[in-house]
Amino acid sequence: MHISINDVRYPLDSAITVEQLLKQHAPEHTGLAVAINNTVLAKRLWPQYQLQPDDAVQLFQIVTGG
């Protein structure tokens, strides 16, 4: 199956959770937020949410700003 992450299409060999996805792609990053198909996914749901085919995942991070 395929998903998109920040508008780039990625293949997935097997179903994984959002938490697993973040461990693979952004293990060192802090201050992350996730939206799936334009809906914000609460952090407490990251371990449970299984990515579905064609899910559009948007990943965000906290940065400096005024």
Binding site: T30, G31, L32, L59, F60, Q61, G66
Partner: peptide, 19 residues
């Protein structure tokens, strides 16, 4: 202290801003 948000760029190393 104020902070902002942007799309994650995981290819770039991140300074530990928050801790």
């Amino acid at each position: 202290v104020t902070l902002a948000l942007k799309r994650l760029q995981w290819e770039q190393p991140q300074d530990d801003l928050l801790n």
